[in-house]
Design a protein around this nucleic acid. Sequence first.
RNA 1: GCCAGUAUAGCUCAGUUGGCCAGAGCAGCUGAUUUGUAAUCAGCUGGUCGGGGGUUCGAAUCCCUCUACUGGCUCCA
Length: 646
Amino acid sequence: MINITLPDNSVKSYESGVTALKIAADISEGLARNVLAAKVNGDIWDATRPINQDAKVQLLTWNDEEGKAAMWHSSAHLMAEAIELLYPGTKFGIGPDIENGFYYDVDFGSHDISDKDFGKIEQKMQELARSKQEFSRKEVSKQEAETYFTNKGDEYKLELINELEDGQITFYESGYFTDLCRGPHIPNTGVIKAIKLLKIAGAYWRGDEKRKQLTRIYGITFPKKKELDEYLLLLEEAKKRDHRVLGKELELFTFSQNVGQGLPLWLPKGAQLREKLEQYLKRVQKDAGYESVITPHIGNVNLYKTSGHFQKYGEESFRPITTPVEGEEFFLKPMNCPHHCEIFNFKPHSYKELPIRYAEFGTVYRYEQSGELHGLTRVRGFTQDDAHIFCTPDQIKSEFNGVIDIIQQIFKALDFKDVLIQISLRDPNNPTKYIGSDENWEKAESAIIEVAEERGLNAKIEYGEAAFYGPKMDFMVKDAIGRKWQLGTIQVDYNLPERFDLTYIGADNEKHRPVMIHRAPFGSMERFVAVLIEHCAGNFPLWLTPDQVIILPISEKYQEYAEKVLSLLKKHEIRSLIDDRSEKTGRKIRDAEMKKIPFMLIVGEKEENDLTVSVRKHGGEDIGTLSIDGFADHINNEIKASLQEK
RNA sequence: GCCAGUAUAGCUCAGUUGGCCAGAGCAGCUGAUUUGUAAUCAGCUGGUCGGGGGUUCGAAUCCCUCUACUGGCUCCA
C-alpha cells in the first residue's frame, strides 16, 4: 500500500500501481472524466501512469495550465496521426504545445500543402478524436527506438534519439501513430471536442537557417465547441486593435512603396502624438541629469570600422554612400553610439564629471530582412530615444537604478501593466566569446541582479543571451495578439570604450576606461507607438491624444460661437477642432466617437446665451454643462491628475 | 532571406466553371436640409482589377515573373 497526499493535505492509501485517473474516479465520476494529467511529486505525469510509491498528487484539468498543455501536446500527436494517414510517407520533426495551442513540424516530402488542406486534416482529427484513442506510454531502449525510426525512415526523429540517453527514452502510442515523446498525455482523445488549425508556415529544422525548412502547422483544440468560438472571436477582436489598422483609421502613419519598404511616414496626427511623447521623455531626462546632443544621420565608414559594426553588419546594411572624392564612403547611421563616443572624446574628462549622460532622439537605418518588416514594430528607419551613459564600473548599479526609474515612470504613465523583464547574462559554458574582463562582467552582472532584487522586479534571467559586449536588461510588452516586443532596454558595453579608446582621469591622476551604458526607455518611437496603440486600442491618454476636444455646433448659426470656444481652449493649450459640417448632431457625435476623441462639446442656443458648453465624454458619459473656463480647468485637472497619480 | 497566402475606387469588400462598357457601401464633391447626444436626403466624381510578360477569339478570373502586404521561421548592432 502507498500513501497519496492530495493538495488539501488529505492522505489516502492505495495499492501500489494506482493511477491519478483512479484517484479522480474515487472523488467523483465527473472529475475522472475531466482529468487530463497529474502532478506527481512535482512532475507532470499521464493520469494513466501507475504510481508505485508514496506521492503528492495534484489532478490537472482544463483549468490548469499544465492540463491545457497536456491536451494541446496530445492534440499535436492527433494532428500528426491524421497527417500520417492522409499523407503517407510524411516525416515528423517536433510537435510541442505552446502558449495558445500547439504545432507540429513536418516534412511532407512530395506533397504540396497549404491552408486549403486544413479542412481535410481537421476532419480526420475529429474522426480520430471521436474514437477515444488512448495514449499508451512505453519505455524503450535507444536501440529499439533507433530501429523503429530507421524502419520508418524518419531521419528527424533519429537525430533527436541520437542526442538522448539510453534508459530515458519513451514512446507514446495512440491509434495508428507512435511518437518519440517524453509526454505526458491525456488519457484519451475523447476530450478533444473542438479543433481548429490556424496557420501554416515554414520553420527551419532545429531553428537552423542552414538546415531544411519543414512545414509547421499551428492549431488549437478545446474541450467544448463554445470555447473555440469564444477564442476565435477574441482573435477577431484583437485584430481590431492592430496598430496597422488603427494607424490607418486614426490617420497616424502610412507607408508608401515609392518611399520604400519599412520606411514609415508619420501623418500630422501621428507626428503630434510622437512629439508629445518626445517632450514628455525629454523633460523626465532633463530632471534625471541627461544632456541633449545632436549628431548627423550619416558617418564616415571609418567610424564604423572603429566601432566594429562595419565588419559585423556592413554586408547586410544599406550600401555605403559615395562622394565625388575617390574612395570616400559614408554610412547611414545604424546606431548613435559611435557618434556619442566621438562626442565623449571631444575633450579629456575627469572622474569628477562622471557619469556623463548624452541623450539624443537619433534616427537610424538598418536594412532588416524583408520578411522581418512588420508595421511600425519592425522597420528600416526608426528613431531611438537613445542615450549613452559614461561612468565608472562602480556607478553601474546606481545608473541602472536611475534608468529603471525612468522606464517604470513611462510605463506607469501609459498604463503598461504586463511588462516582462529579462536580464541577459553570459553563457557560462562559453566564456571566451565575450569582450571585457571577468572582473568587470562579474561586477556588472551582479549589479544588475542586485538592482532587480532590491526593486522587487519580477525579472527572468537568461544565460547566454547577453551581447558579446556586455549584459543587459530588456523590458518587453505584448501586442494585441500576444506577440512580445522589446521596448525599453539597458545595456552595459565594455567594447566601444575600448575601441574608441575612451578614458577619464581618475583621482590617482591615471587614465581609466569608463563603462558605457546604452539605454532607450521607449526603445524606438515607432515600436513604442505601435505597442501603445494596440495597448489602448487607439484610446490614448488625454495628455497624449492628438485631438482632445471636438466642438459640435448644433447648426451653422452657432459656428461663430464654436470658433470663440475654440480660440479660448487654444489659450488653455487644449487641442481642439470644430465639426462644421452641415450634419445632424447625432451624426457628428457618431463620427467623433469613431475618431476616439475624448471630449465632445455640443454648442447651441442655450450654450451661446450662457457662454457654456455641453460636455459629452467619449463612450457616452454626460458631464453636463460647464462654463468654457470651467471645462478648460476640468480637462487640465484631469491631465494633471492622471500624470501625477502615476 | 526562407515557407505559405493575399493584392479589384481613398477605405471595407462583391465579381459564379475565362464571355457584352468592372459593382456595392462608406469616404469625397455638388445641391437640398439648419439639425440637441452614435449614420438626413438626392445627384455626381472616382478603378490600366499591384507592375510586366504569356496562354486564349476573348483574362480581374489561367500560367510565369517582379513588387508590396499578411502569418510564421531565421535575424534583430
